[in-house]
Design a binder for these strands. Sequence first.
DNA 1: TCCTCAAGTCATCGATCGGTGACTTACCTG
DNA 2: CAGGTAAGTCACCGATCGATGACTTGAGGA
Lengths: 194, 194
Amino acid sequence: MTKQPGRKRDREATRARLLECARLRFARDGYDGTSVRDVAGDVGVDPALVFRYFGSKSGLFSDAMATSQEAVVLPDGPVEELPAKLLHQLVFEDWAEYAGEHPLIAMLRSASHEDMRDRVRQQVCDGYLGVLSELAEGNDDKDLRTELFGAWLLGIGILRTAVGTPSLTKATEADLTPHLASVAKALFGRDIPV
Amino acid sequence: MTKQPGRKRDREATRARLLECARLRFARDGYDGTSVRDVAGDVGVDPALVFRYFGSKSGLFSDAMATSQEAVVLPDGPVEELPAKLLHQLVFEDWAEYAGEHPLIAMLRSASHEDMRDRVRQQVCDGYLGVLSELAEGNDDKDLRTELFGAWLLGIGILRTAVGTPSLTKATEADLTPHLASVAKALFGRDIPV
DNA sequence: TCCTCAAGTCATCGATCGGTGACTTACCTG
DNA sequence: CAGGTAAGTCACCGATCGATGACTTGAGGA
């Protein structure tokens, strides 16, 4: 990712590399902890180029997070397998691109600005909660129970990666699956085989 | 909280006011988003005084968070009431001193530095998880189930205050208690009246 | 080959940050 | 009332930040 004197001049490729490095930096160090010079230095390019391409630092941030949203692939398949799949994706998948943390958890680090909060909420609601809502039945408080289950998955991810609580950090996916099933049954009122 | 020309020169009182305003700033804007000049301006004092009292910005941060830890009162009483009390304290109590958010959730905003992560982990483990562990029985994975329940409470707090998910934001304490009971029963294997 | 236009660079600005040391002011004591 | 001491202030430093505009360089077409 360092400057290579003989590389070609390719606007789109350079732009993509800037976005990639920006995603990693913003996720690992947060918005304030990342400077435009850092990102440009990772790509091996002059910092002024970042402003030519993205207008401002917040523009770079928005574009980087917008492209990251496409990278999150929501699982499909039988609804009974959704909790296990979401747990795997939120907690156990190796998000090397985001310094080992899930993008959502990493984004919370930069949630000081209001637009970041809106983006996280939209991604959570339209993405994960929308998938999870297929699990809930009934009309009374379907959405609430869905969000409660999503809160659990998010809390597990945060305690594991951001806080580093001992038992959850050591736990394997197999250690969590039985509890995943029992909590899913308690919230959704039906058996969820995992 | 502005400068009052006729106020007395009281080192301890000024120091306490600095810590109070620092806690609010750090919680609301994060470590990087808070400047020493901001905190000093809130108290109505010269920024240089902050360095005279706390040595550095990180010293101010450490002292502010150390004093905040004492402010967290862990509930006691019958173990059966612990989940409801913790839920109230983590989610529904009005933490006006910390811009409406629970200190733990606010601290995650400043978790870019490593010592912040250690402090949050220590506070979670020695505090909340220690209290919750009285709920778990058996020896197989007592600690894991305790952390799983703590993860849920933390996730609820984050979805409510930091993400702003719709149903959880609107939910009252009474809306959550039945689900709190069922999940506690699922994880701890015994009835928890709430 | 040479010209053109876009990709990329360079120099620099103004603001703000954490931090330092000399200075001034107010309170307490004798 | 006088003077010492601690609380609080002032001026300033070096570094870094986001951002701007003029400049240079390289690749492709006529």
